[in-house]
Structure formats: C-alpha cells, structure tokens
Design a protein around this nucleic acid. Structure first.
Length: 200
DNA sequence: TTTACGATCTAT
DNA sequence: TAGATCGTAAAT
C-alpha cells in the first residue's frame, strides 16, 4: 500500500514530460498551499492538458506573450492567469523541454485547513468549495503573485506532494471545458481527466 | 485607442 | 440562463 502521508514534493523531472502524461499522473496528488502559518491542501481529482502552440485551445497558440511567458519556462513552475475579468486559474507548467504546455488544475478534494478554506469560500456548501479552477484559487489564496512560483520547492508557499494514484479503472476522460469556440480536432480531444473519489 | 471575448462562477 | 467585470490580443 502506498503511504498517504508522504511529504515528498514532486520534482521538476515529474513535470518535464508531455502535458497529457503529467495530467494523468497528477490525479491523486496533493496540492499544498502555505498561507501565513496555515497549511491548506487538497487531493487533485480533475485536470486538463494544454499542449503547445499547435493546440488551438492553449494560451500559447498566439506565441509567447507577457501573459503566457511562464509556460515557456521550466517544467514545474506555476502558470496563474486571470480570466473573465475576475477569476484566477492555476496550472502546472510541463514539458517536454521547451514546448509551452501546462496542466490546468480543475478540481481538488480539501483535506487540510478545512476551516480556513470554508472561511475563504463562505456562503458555499462544502461540495462546491474547490470544484472548479477559479474556486481552487479563491479557496487557497492563489492569484497573480503566484504566477511563476516554483511548485518543486516550498519557497513560494505552493507545491505538490506525492499522494495515492487512483485505481486506473476509476479514471475518466472527456473534452476540455470552456473552449466551445476552438476548432476541431482540439475542441473534442479527450484531454480532461478526472476520477471519482470513493466517498462521493 | 477601441473592440471583442474569454481554460468561470453565481444567482435567478 | 444571463450578468458580473477587466486583462489580453487583434483590429482600427
């Protein structure tokens, strides 16, 4: 049985692979945020892969700009972007190598710092605390200041620890969300991955 | 400088 | 099902 309490931080090499592979392997891992003296964490259960300038759903489709520059950086950095005039979303930059790719973190199951998360998501039921990319950032206090943060170290207060990979038969996949105006085949590629947690 | 729209969320 | 709300990239 894999241990559920390991504090091993995923290294840069973990992210230096195609985004779809990294997305798959991030399922079951633990996203950790240090906010003041409080440790907040959740198990990643839904992700999406965005791979390179050729992927017309990827922010890198327009080439390198000030906004997406972090995606051209080292695998294992956080790419945090602002959207719809009010929301922040968190990605993990992936490889391989220089290819501007990332994995959008779309859903986590809160497991540490529940009181803080509840306060940050006041008014919402627990089931909706972190079931969307912008909700995760609101719950964990992630915004533009974390853009470019090193997910492979604790120095920026945001990292990912090794957890328990889900049983392969529980993993599902489908089209990515919110890209209706993107042409095929990109719109329908099954690059959103998720798994159903035992308790839900 | 103006315009159109978005890897979303919430209340209705 | 529509409104919120503003940075970004492309058009003017």
């Amino acid at each position: 049985m894999p241990t559920a309490t390991s504090n091993e931080i995923l290294p840069s090499a973990f992210y230096d692979r195609p985004a779809l592979e990294v997305a798959h392997d991030l399922l079951g891992m633990r996203l950790v945020r240090l906010l003041g003296n409080n440790r907040l964490a959740g198990i990643i259960y839904e992700v999406e892969a965005y791979q390179g300038e050729e992927d017309l759903a990827c922010h890198a489709r327009v080439g390198k700009t000030a906004r997406n520059a972090v995606m051209y950086g080292r695998p294992g950095l956080a790419y945090v972007y602002f959207t719809y005039g009010m929301h922040w979303c968190l990605n993990a930059v992936t490889g391989p190598g220089e290819i501007p790719s990332a994995v959008l973190i779309r859903g986590i199951l809160p497991v540490e710092g529940l009181d803080i998360i509840a306060a940050r998501r006041s008014g919402q039921p627990k089931s909706h605390w972190t079931d969307g990319p912008a909700k995760i950032c609101a719950a964990l206090g992630i915004d533009g200041q974390q853009n470019g943060a090193d997910l492979c170290s604790t120095k920026d207060g945001l990292w990912v620890e090794r957890g328990n990979p889900p049983p392969p038969e529980t993993i599902q996949h489908g089209a990515r969300i919110g890209i209706a105006s993107v042409p095929e085949p990109w719109r329908s590629l099954p690059w959103r991955l998720w798994f159903t947690l035992p308790d839900q």
